[in-house]
Design a protein around this nucleic acid. Structure first.
Length: 491
DNA sequence: TGTGCCGGGGT
DNA sequence: ACCCCGGCACA
């Protein structure tokens, strides 16, 4: 089944809407018809309820088809909120066409308007004729939607996302997309969104794509959940992609905390070809890279059909943020109990292309587990009772509050568990002292006073002597009887 | 001052 | 290794 057929037969498309708005399902047909009238088909896909009615994050995707039904291979980012933006050409044309979007012909216009209470409906105001980028801009978040110029050219990822959603819909009963409030992005939303995306994409085995679907290098980049504040965090979210990719972190974009916006950003282009991490600073360079190295074409040929656009991703690198993130990953960081700020403050939304890409390749089971768990490890050997060690397991979701609260001490990743068991008394106390994140100094040095400097603080809990008393000394633990550190009532 | 426990010695 | 204790630090 080709793409057009896919669209015609199974697509249920809605437009991401606002709070309380009724479903816009079924508008796809209108879009498609309208699109066909213009020689193209536009399908706006709302991820919501693609699978299992999960309260997934919201993203908008567009699938642009030529009049002959072929999926356009140019990157596409902008979609008209009204569903009539047909901008199949490259950036300049699309940008110029942004202002030419026709007013909405949404059949649900009236119902969308009716859900507006008090506030002026974005449908009535600027949304009409306004474009939303697939990045996830939402009419509820702001009626004024800035379209970053460098992103206006967009990516193939949204097309792929839309296609993935369409494929998913083709193989399952397409649910009616309903509109949900999106002023907040709950944790479950993002996780569900991620899972939905992973599922929808991985489940697509029909190979309906105009490109080689068997190639895993096909980028699949849904837009992450829609943030409340889209202007904030946009740059950071992209800048953090690199860092997060470096440390192989998982999806971390459900934090709706507004981020401070920085200006020192640089647009980079990352090759998405499998096992290729090439990052270049120019789009032409990355296109040439993809053409020559991965597509086996002449790098200088001008007759490119734009296929290489599928294989690289544009990312905005914030130099400051990146340097901060890398500093947290420096070799000296293992003694720092707090997780790197990159992990603690997941971006409100992010391109997700790289993360999803990594997720598809790795399919980490942890990504499907609970947000985070703690393992309290206690040493069980006599005399060597230590403070419990909290080890955070890396989950798919990491909220900053979790890291700050629960992470008392995290051993360096290179330290095997056996080494966690301290050998002698003086050493076993050091982790406790170093557990304070405010102590940046290196590990204990020989300059400590030999007798008193490293003495373990007295435990607060009851010991065998207090519990059983001197008269029941036989009930004491061996260590207490020997006047050693109590091993029964450790602190 | 009582308690926890380190360091050391004895067996 | 097991047992014991002097002595120090801490509450």
């Amino acid at each position: 089944m080709n793409s057009e057929g896919l669209l015609n037969t199974s697509l249920a498309v809605g437009v991401s809407g606002c709070r309380g708005a009724p479903t816009l399902a079924g508008s796809c047909g209108r879009h498609m018809e309208d699109g066909k009238a213009n020689g193209k088909i536009v399908a706006t896909v709302d991820s919501h309820k693609i699978h299992n009615n999960l309260p997934t994050g919201r993203f908008l995707c567009t699938v642009l088809l030529d009049s002959d039904g072929a999926v356009r291979k140019q990157r596409n980012e902008a979609i008209a909120f009204t569903g009539t933006a047909l901008l199949p050409d490259r950036r300049e044309k699309r940008l110029s066409a942004f202002n030419k979007v026709q007013p909405c012909e949404m059949e649900d216009r009236s119902s969308a308007d009716s859900r507006s209470t008090g506030d002026q409906s974005p449908w009535d105001t600027e949304v009409k004729g306004q474009l939303l980028t697939g990045r996830g801009l939402h009419p509820c978040a702001s009626s004024h939607i800035p379209v970053p110029s460098h992103r206006a050219a967009g990516h193939a990822d949204r097309e792929v996302m839309a296609a993935a959603a369409l494929t998913s819909l083709s193989s399952s009963s397409a649910p009616a997309f309903t509109l949900h409030p999106q002023n907040t992005v709950p944790e479950a939303t993002s996780r569900g969104w991620k899972e939905t995306l992973s599922t929808s994409y991985s489940s697509s085995t029909s190979g309906n794509w105009s490109w080689d679907a068997s190639d895993q290098s096909v980028p699949c980049t849904p837009s992450p959940p829609l943030p409340t504040n889209t202007s904030k965090g946009f740059l950071l979210s992209q800048a953090e992609d690199i860092t997060e990719e470096t440390e192989n972190t998982h999806f971390l974009f459900e934090d709706p905390i507004p981020r401070k916006r920085r200006n020192s950003t640089k647009v980079m282009f990352k090759c998405l070809w499998k096992n290729c991490d090439t990052v270049l600073s120019s789009s032409s360079g990355i296109q040439r890279h993809v053409r020559t190295l991965h597509l086996g074409r002449n790098g200088d040929s001008d007759d490119s059909d734009g296929e290489e656009d599928f294989y690289y991703s544009e990312m905005e690198v914030n130099v400051d943020t990146l340097s901060e993130g890398l500093s947290c990953l420096s070799p000296t960081s293992p003694t720092t109990p707090t997780a790197p700020p990159i992990s603690q403050t997941p971006p409100p939304f992010r391109p997700a292309l790289i993360s999803l890409w990594a997720d598809l390749r790795c399919a980490s089971p942890l990504s499907q587990s609970a947000p985070s768990t703690l393992c309290h490890i206690r040493t069980d050997h006599a005399y060597q009772a230590t403070a419990p060690v909290s080890i955070r397991t890396v989950g798919s979701v990491c909220r900053p509050s979790d890291a700050e609260v629960s992470l008392s001490w995290q051993p360096p990743p290179t330290v095997p568990p056996a080494q966690i068991r301290m050998v002698n008394a003086s050493e076993k106390r050091q982790p406790i002292q170093n557990s304070c994140s405010t102590k940046p100094h290196p590990p204990a040095t020989p300059t400590l006073k030999p007798s008193t400097g490293n003495r373990k603080p007295r435990g607060e809990g009851k010991k065998c002597r207090k519990v059983y008393g001197m008269e029941k000394r036989e009930l004491w633990c061996t260590a207490c009887r020997w006047k050693k550190a109590c091993q029964r009532f450790t602190d």
